[in-house]
Design a protein around this nucleic acid. Structure first.
Length: 585
RNA sequence: GGGCGGGUAGCUCAGUUGGAUAGAGCAUUUGGCUACGAACCAAAAGGUCGGGGGUUCGAAUCCCUCCUCGCUCACCA
């Protein structure tokens, strides 16, 4: 289905050409939703922007455009307002017909892209030998939502987990374990993940304080990268253990990822350096092999290098990321590569992308984009910590969310005297708790820092997951009582939008496609959250004002269909965010 | 000092390529349940869009400048 917005744009463009000639073909018709419903549903500001070049009164231009518009089937006669805005009000018959058209379609009429281009979404990417913490939550949730949206649009999406399973931290850990717990390097599961984490911290302290240990650790990295067997064996044990821990979280959050860690690119790192050497970009500086960047300077104002080989011969993450780009372009045939990491890595990616372009590793027709997000902070505006000062563990946080949701459900049921089975409560608490966490993050996806607030996240009022889940449960409850089979409707069943709330709801349902297409390019899932919230509000208003089950036919069937379409739209929208629905709650 | 990103209602945040009187939610005050499930709806109140200049028919949005907060600036990732 072509979205209403696109149809209007085309119509206005055609009217411009008809009124002012073929040179208007490239003119943006400036059609958008109105800022205020009293101006109608859509507006075009094109007449205002043409006033100067055409040297005519904008209202006169607007009138000429309207005279050449052919949209009688869609809209009431457009009106001119203020200095020259053209306002469009959709006809309720038109909206009803469109709803009828999308009703039988599982995708609710939302189009897929014509060619299934390969898109890589690189997200989550925790570090081996460390527990996942809230910082990984954002990347995981946002990345998953972006992947789901692009998959729904028909792209061939490769979800890559670029785990930190290589590099200096490993040298540190292995060097430390060699002297402190040699058994852990040869026996599976000799230590649990919590021990590993504390050992990692001790290793880090020694690394920072003890110059000799630092050298040993670096040598361990070089050994590992060169393929030393005992180092590799130890490394593998550590990775397996961490991987199982990560999987618990991914299962809980329903996240699917293909693991391709940094180690995967190890065989290609040397080639990257020699390739850069051939292009003449490579320079040796202070013992390290570097490519100096345009537009980046250090504290002293000198050009900043991207180091691709350290003075000890080891490679670092810039080398790995360059090798990853090359592999993703050549082998995966990606046309778009999306990196979901915290905004602190913006400079790093800008540097890597620049070098990749210059070196010809990254062709012009492949898009790379860094999707940054802010730090997760506590209420004090500082990095999120537990009361004891430790990092908040992701698993604990998710468990707490589910417990919170369960407590709320139980008191609610008690207040209403409702009896539910333990299985029902388990399931509902799980869905509500986890969706609250996901939604709280996705709904305010800004690149600025993110204040983590349990109370707000689990609040059941306002723009939250429970509000949307409730807006889904309500029409589902009505449908169950409505005795209607939506898959076998009579073909002349009309959707009648006579009340204001019905019409507003109908229009809202039809906007999902516009929103999805917008997010496809902006990669801002919070737009979908906002849309779903507004849709839910419109449903609740409709539900409040219009009787469904007690209405007379044909209104009753029409309203049942409208309610069902709302439920399906919410379910689809939430599924694109990785959020499940409940039939009852 | 350089680069990047912020500063919008008491709090948390939206605000699409510049568009009409800057919007939500929470909190506050008030009204609506003999329930198509009130986890809802309706209403009130709440703003020098960090300050100051500029660009134009029109600026929260673009440019300049200053204040302020965060991240970052060569061998961690």
């Amino acid at each position: 289905m072509t979205s209403i917005l696109e149809q209007l744009k085309d119509s206005v463009s055609n009217a411009l050409i008809a009124a002012f000639g073929a040179e208007m073909a490239d003119k943006d018709p400036l059609v958008a939703s109105t800022s205020n419903p009293k101006f109608g549903d859509y507006q075009s500001n094109v007449a205002l922007s043409l006033a100067k070049p055409l040297k005519q009164n904008p209202r006169a231009i607007a009138q000429l455009i309207i005279d050449h518009l052919q949209i009688e089937d869609m809209c009431e006669t457009p009106t001119i307002a203020g200095p020259g805005f053209i306002n469009f009000m959709l006809k309720s018959d038109y909206v009803g017909n469109l709803l009828q058209e999308i009703q039988p379609d599982e995708r609710l009429g939302i189009a897929q892209v014509e060619s299934a281009d390969k898109v890589i979404v690189d997200f989550s990417s925790p570090n081996i030998a460390k527990e996942m913490h809230v910082g990984h939550l954002r990347s995981t949730i946002i990345g998953d939502a972006i992947a789901r949206i692009l998959e729904f649009r028909g792209y061939d999406v490769l979800r890559l987990n670029h785990v930190g399973d290589w590099g200096t931290q490993f040298g540190m850990l292995i060097a430390y374990l060699r002297e402190a717990y040699p058994k852990a390097l040869t026996t599976a599961d000799a230590l649990d993940i919590g021990d590993l984490v504390s050992l990692y911290k001790k290793a880090k302290v020694r690394f920072d304080e003890d110059e000799e240990f630092k050298q040993t650790a670096r040598q361990e990295v070089v050994n590992l990268q060169a393929g030393a067997e005992d180092s590799l064996h130890a490394w593998k044990l550590l990775c397996d253990q961490s991987r199982r821990e990560f999987q618990v979280i991914y299962d809980l959050l329903d996240i699917k990822l293909d693991e391709r860690g940094e180690s995967f690119y190890n065989p290609f790192l040397g080639d990257i350096v020699s390739e850069l050497k051939e292009t003449g970009l490579l320079e040796k500086s202070e013992g390290a092999m570097c490519v100096f960047l345009d537009g980046f300077t250090n504290k002293d104002g000198d050009p900043l290098p991207l180091i691709v080989q350290k003075s000890d011969g080891g490679f670092n993450y810039a080398t790995t990321d360059l090798a990853a780009i090359k592999y993703r372009v050549k082998e995966d045939k990606a046309t778009r590569i999306i990196y979901v990491t915290d905004s602190g890595q913006a400079n790093h990616f800008a540097g890597v992308f620049q070098v990749a372009r210059k070196a010809g590793i990254l062709p012009e027709d492949v898009e790379v984009v860094h999707v940054p997000f802010g730090l997760v902070q506590g209420k004090d505006g500082k990095r999120l910590k537990t009361r004891s000062g430790a990092t908040v563990k992701l698993k604990d946080l998710l468990d707490e969310a589910v417990i919170h949701a369960r407590n709320d459900l139980e008191t609610r049921f008690k207040d209403y005297g409702r009896e539910e089975t333990p299985e029902f409560i388990d399931r509902a608490a799980q869905v509500i708790g986890l969706s609250a966490v996901k939604y709280a993050d996705l709904s305010q996806n800004r690149t600025s820092d993110y204040v983590f607030d349990f109370q707000k996240m689990l609040d059941l009022k306002g723009n939250t997951a429970p509000y949307l889940l409730y807006a889904y449960v309500r029409p589902q409850g009505v449908s169950r009582k409505g005795d209607i089979n939506f898959s076998q409707l009579d073909s002349n069943t009309k959707i009648l939008l006579t009340e204001n709330t019905e019409l507003a709801l109908g229009k809202s349902i039809l906007q999902l496609e516009e929103v999805i297409k917008e997010v496809e390019s902006t990669l801002l899932p919070n737009r979908i959250c906002l849309y779903l919230f507004e849709l839910s509000q419109k449903f609740n208003q409709f539900y409040e004002q219009c009787d469904i089950l007690n209405a007379e036919e044909p209104q009753k069937t029409s309203r049942l269909i409208l309610a069902d379409l709302t439920a399906r739209t919410i379910k689809l929208g939430l599924s694109l965010l990785g959020i499940e629905v409940l039939e009852r709650m």
